[in-house]
């Protein structure tokens, strides 16, 4: 709550850095950092073959572990090459595709399921609510990584399994937040009137209640997408993601780890890509929350 006055408060600070930051109104108003990082990320994901200087699996065995530009390398391989002589930059660009695809599909499916669960739970209340919310509680106390590893052990690693797991990881947050909103909305007069007018339950939920929670859904989606990317990266790192040679950032970091003593870039670069994308998504999420739904500040 107190933070709503931040803009004024930051102006009269003593330190120089704070003063400079406070005076850049553009940075205050728009999530500039996020835009700077996310725009190239999206371009890389959409147009990987056009942007990448080399193919994903193009190998040049004579150019193994070439250091990046400014660290002894040349402009031929700006981010260096990996142990098989593949261009790091190109693989990171193609990896953006995987990250975007996996996070996007998991977010949409998990988000849709969670939102429906939240709508149902909040609107009907009673034992339905009780059951759904207990399931969400249980979901939150499961050790996600271990369950994911167990399922990978049983079924083998595949894209479908990964998407399913990540969707499962993300639905609970949607269900909880949406339910909380619906509890308030269903007491509104316009909802009661719609009921009196004879609108069917699905119609009330979709046309009268859902628009009221749409902002919340958007905010929860932006805030949880970072966690999804991290989970995907963690699973890929442990070998439970999409199998190699596909350039998932997590598995690139894992395979580069072996050369850490001599060639740091092979694992540092893909990990840095993950960190930067997640930082900017988190910043974007905070910004959206403040814009669309400041009440959520207390919860998320």
């Amino acid at each position: 709550m107190a933070q709503t006055q931040t803009t004024e408060a930051t102006l009269n600070t003593s330190s120089r850095l704070g003063w400079m930051i406070g005076w850049l109104p553009v940075i205050r108003r728009w999530p500039v950092t996020s835009i700077i990082i996310l725009v190239p990320f999206v371009i890389a994901a959409v147009a990987a073959p056009l942007v990448a200087p080399y193919g994903v699996n193009d190998q040049e065995l004579s150019d193994r572990l070439v250091p990046p530009l400014f660290f002894g390398g040349s402009t031929k391989y700006i981010l260096g090459t990996d142990a098989l002589g593949r261009d790091m930059l190109s693989r990171i660009i193609y990896g953006a595709r995987i990250t975007a695809l996996v996070a996007g599909v998991a977010l949409i499916s998990g988000g849709a399921f969670g939102t429906i669960m939240g709508l149902v739970s909040g609107y009907f209340g009673g034992w339905v609510d009780e059951v759904i919310m207990r399931i969400v509680d249980i979901k939150f106390s499961l050790p996600f990584i271990l369950i994911a590893l167990a399922l990978t052990l049983i079924y083998g690693s595949s894209l479908q399994l990964l998407l399913g797991l990540l969707a499962f990881l993300t639905w609970g947050g949607f269900a909880r937040q949406v339910r909380g909103e619906v509890l308030l909305l269903r007491e509104m007069d316009y909802v009661k009137l719609a009921k009196v007018a004879g609108a069917s339950t699905p119609r009330i939920l979709m046309n009268h209640i859902f628009p009221g929670v749409a902002n919340t859904v958007a905010v929860v989606a932006t805030i949880s997408v970072g966690g999804l990317i991290l989970a995907e990266a963690g699973l890929s790192f442990l070998g439970a993601g999409i199998p190699p040679p596909s350039p998932a950032w997590g598995s690139m970091t894992a395979s580069g780890r072996l050369y850490i003593a001599t060639s740091w870039w092979a694992s540092v670069m893909p990990g840095l890509a993950i960190a930067l994308v997640v930082v900017s998504l988190t910043l974007l999420g905070d910004w959206m929350r403040d814009r669309l739904d400041p009440r959520l500040r207390q919860v998320l």
Partner: peptide
């Protein structure tokens, strides 16, 4: 020290810890 450099640095520390994958 809300709004100061200390605040900014602390929050960046928090943000980065949250966003950087632990294995990395």
């Amino acid at each position: 020290t809300r709004g100061s450099a200390w605040d900014y640095l602390s929050r960046s520390f928090a943000m980065f810890g949250h966003a950087a994958p632990s294995f990395w």
